[in-house]
Design a protein around this nucleic acid. Structure first.
Lengths: 354, 354
DNA sequence: AATAGAATTTCCAACGTTGTATTTCAGCGT
DNA sequence: ACGCTGAAATACAACGTTGGAAATTCTATT
């Protein structure tokens, strides 16, 4: 039913190794022989058995992507891109959801998922800088995200400080001076998670502009989901703190805040300009559409897959760990007084379910 | 470095087959022997080589999920649930994105992805009823969605007609009489895609309520994404057609329509009540939060995985194809004049990226 | 103590592939 | 015609696992 090298070899009248050589583009095969074998492969609809190949070669052609939850827009988009990039390299992707639990993330590092995969792309959410030692694993691992820096593995991440600063400067550039921030985390000097990095960028922009940092404008919100964005915004409004702009540390918070602003009758961007972070698809379609920082996710996905495949192919002593920073850009939309050209708003390049 | 059955056998002082028996819960192993083997397995951190197991047994323990785009909320949520269910059964999931192209979907049926997987969950978006013959494949396949009915494979889907009727009746129940619909497709008698099924439900509800069907209220929109929902709504408003309610054939269209309504200063639900379809997470957080039809996606995911695993395990003549219909429910939110209890709105059970 | 019968363990082969080593072949110079 | 060279093709073994059957050990009877 399913044909093997043996069947192809029989039909083509050669040995199975010759068929294998053809399949693997081994150079020393006579064109005539190659043609005969290829014809047999076509006739029999032969496909390599990946289990056998994996057993023999020690490589499965599958990489793992360990993320908290596919349900979160950010990770769905990341996974989407990563799968596309991997597919171009003829690599399959198995997704492992850690459910954003420390337990789940430790299981990733313990290699519980490694049974099938040649290596793992790992975007932790619970592990932090203190866990950096745990990244010393004996399989190829590429780290994503901003939870851990300076680890022993390749790391692909975004320019948090610079891009947050740019976002803040965007608000300053349109004349805003009282810029609230939602999404901070309790201060912890040893914690360099992205919240703190982005807050740092925010403060730098203020400082450079000569605007004093006002603690009351900076609100804690964790985790970064809509409900907390809305709640933080309601608190700001309740406390009657004056502000004319808002920077939320991710888009999801921003969308929640937009909702709370809408409920309260605050006009965006007239009364309050809003910018988020991540540039998820959804932000283009909110009311009003929301400006955001595009942290270069496509580039991150592309780079991460490339680095991982390099590591998997690597022989001998591993090269020292590399850190790659993606390019960012500010996407201006209605929430900061801009409007995208109609085409862009309409250009949903991704056909929807019908 | 990586230990095998052989290593474990050596340490435990038994044959590799005995270790294999322990690993596979073969009953006739003395408790004492079993304990010794398990200890060795722990000590050596032994994990079965899935390639070898797959080669020997012909099963990989991996299933494929073929969907158009992970980037679409609906599919991200579906994939999320399916991966969770599969994980409980110790099965991994490889995601294959067809990019919503016919070509990509044909590749799925051609088994291009089958190299690694024991079977496939397939949610087509381009293939239609005319392609039903193509579903006759020689590997386990479970069909999802509403594009093709009566095929040769198991099929898990939703009650489109009934649930769309219930959605319409919900709008009728709150006193609305001029109910617009967005998301219809050009009429084609042989096409039973979900758009037409849902329109059928809508018409049945109207008919039962004694309300005439008004062609002008029914708008085409394809594909079902936000931009088209907004565009259809703008057209309705521009044409000054009177309506006091809106049923969009999915949530994404509805969110786009909400945006257009907001832009036009139309109040929701006061002027126009809105209900969508799919109950994606996002609908809870729009402004206002959007009522929707929950088509029973969790149940669909659960059932689909179960059916597929049954088919994979099936020996001998295959049982006749089964069709499973999930239970639906109407979720009432602000867009139809209800508000969820605060707890539910806040109960985002899925921690976000920090 | 011998023995049937069951329980437990082991042996052997095979799954489909590819790396290494070997053989065969064609073309060339002498 | 002979040996040489490199290209082309092949033979063989091994990757780690498990199904089936055979071998061994144990238990309960007699």
């Amino acid at each position: 039913m399913v044909s093997t090298l043996r069947d192809v070899a029989h039909v083509a009248g050669v040995s199975i190794k010759t068929v294998s050589n053809v399949v693997n583009d081994y150079p020393h095969v006579r064109p005539e022989t190659r043609a005969r074998v290829l014809a047999a492969i076509r006739d029999l609809d032969y496909r390599p058995n990946l289990s056998a190949r994996g057993l023999r070669s020690g490589k499965t052609g599958v990489i793992g992507l360990a993320i908290p939850e596919l349900r979160q827009n950010y990770f769905a988009e990341l996974a989407d891109t990563i799968i596309r990039v991997a597919a171009q390299r003829n690599v399959d992707v198995v997704i492992d959801q850690t459910s954003a639990t420390r337990e789940g993330e430790l299981a990733v590092l313990a290699g519980d998922r490694l049974r099938l995969t040649d290596g793992i792309l790992f975007s932790p959410e619970q592990l932090g800088q203190d866990d950096v030692e745990l990244l010393k694993v004996d399989f190829p691992l590429v780290l994503l995200g901003e939870r851990i820096f300076g680890g022993p593995t390749d790391h692909v991440t975004m320019r948090n400080v610079e891009s947050a600063r740019a976002a803040t400067e965007h608000l300053l550039a349109i004349g805003r001076r009282r810029i609230a921030l939602i999404g901070a985390h309790p201060i912890n000097q040893h914690d360099i998670r992205s919240a703190n990095l982005r807050v740092t960028g925010y403060r730098k922009a203020l400082q450079y502009a000569g605007i004093p940092y006002d603690q009351r404008l900076v609100r804690v919100a964790a985790p970064w989901h809509r409900g907390n964005g809305a709640a933080a915004m309601r608190a700001l409004l309740d406390e009657k703190i004056e502000f004319d702009a808002l920077f939320t540390l991710n888009d999801t918070l921003g969308l929640g805040a937009l909702r709370a602003l809408g409920e309260a009758g605050v006009r965006v961007p007239d009364d309050v300009a809003v910018i988020g972070f991540d540039n998820i698809d959804e932000s283009r379609f909110s009311v009003p559409s929301m400006s955001s920082v595009d942290p270069g996710q496509d580039q991150i996905a592309q780079t991460a897959v490339e680095l991982l495949l390099e590591r998997i192919a690597e022989k001998g002593t591993p090269a020292p760990p590399r850190q790659i920073l993606a390019d960012y850009r500010i996407v201006r939309r209605e929430s900061t007084g801009f409007s995208e050209p109609a085409e862009e708003a309409a250009a949903v390049s991704l056909p929807a379910r019908i």
